[in-house]
Amino acid sequence: MPKQGAGTGGDLGNEVEGYLLWQARVAEAERRAREFTGSLEWLTTAQREEIERRYAADSLRRARADLERVAARCMSLRAEYEQRYGELRRRCLAMTLAVCAGLTTVATLLLVL
């Protein structure tokens, strides 16, 4: 989802940052998988590789689900804050107009007297 006010450079920067963060997550999942299988000395090489692959895939699947939940929550919070900001703007505008109308009325009454 493109951000408001962000140019193409900002979008590219966000994509690069996201890619680098995901690659760091992949590297971490692979490292943790190797640590997990490291203590299982009785595994064959093929078994070790398969367990590492599945462990890393499961870890990345969970990380993706977490990121999707966070992104959905961020979007809902953004919508909520935009709604509240709109209400606040309308209230401030109404208050300003009311004060201006009151001052205009007072000034008109003072000029008439």
Rank of each mutant, 00 (worst) to 15 (best):
D11T: 12
D11W: 10
D11F: 11
L12C: 08
L12F: 14
G13L: 05
G13S: 15
G13T: 10
G13H: 10
N14M: 13
N14Y: 10
E15R: 10
E15A: 12
V16M: 15
E17G: 05
E17M: 08
E17V: 06
L20E: 11
L20I: 11
L21V: 12
W22K: 06
A24F: 01
R25K: 12
V26M: 04
V26F: 07
V26I: 12
V26G: 04
V26S: 09
A27N: 11
A27M: 10
A29H: 05
R31G: 13
R31I: 07
R31M: 13
R32I: 00
R34P: 00
R34A: 14
R34I: 00
E35S: 10
F36V: 01
G38E: 00
G38H: 15
S39E: 09
S39F: 11
L40T: 13
L40M: 15
E41D: 12
W42S: 12
L43P: 06
T44L: 11
T44R: 08
Q47F: 01
Q47I: 11
Q47M: 04
R48S: 13
E49R: 10
E50V: 05
I51K: 09
I51C: 03
E52H: 06
R53Y: 06
R53G: 01
R54A: 00
Y55H: 15
A57K: 14
A57Q: 13
A57W: 05
S59T: 02
L60N: 07
L60D: 02
L60E: 05
L60P: 06
R62S: 11
R62M: 07
R62W: 04
A63W: 09
A63C: 03
A63Q: 02
R64Q: 09
R64A: 06
R64W: 01
R64Y: 12
R64L: 12
A65I: 02
A65L: 01
A65W: 07
A65G: 08
D66G: 09
L67F: 08
L67W: 03
L67V: 03
L67H: 06
E68V: 03
E68I: 00
V70Q: 07
A71D: 10
A72D: 07
A72V: 03
A72P: 00
R73G: 02
R73V: 00
R73S: 06
M75G: 04
M75H: 14
M75K: 05
S76E: 09
L77C: 05
L77Q: 06
R78F: 02
A79G: 02
E80A: 06
E80L: 10
E80H: 04
E82V: 00
R84W: 01
R84C: 03
R84V: 04
Y85L: 15
E87I: 01
E87D: 03
L88W: 03
R89Q: 08
R90H: 06
R90D: 03
R91Q: 14
R91Y: 02
C92Q: 12
C92H: 11
C92S: 13
L93Y: 04
L93H: 06
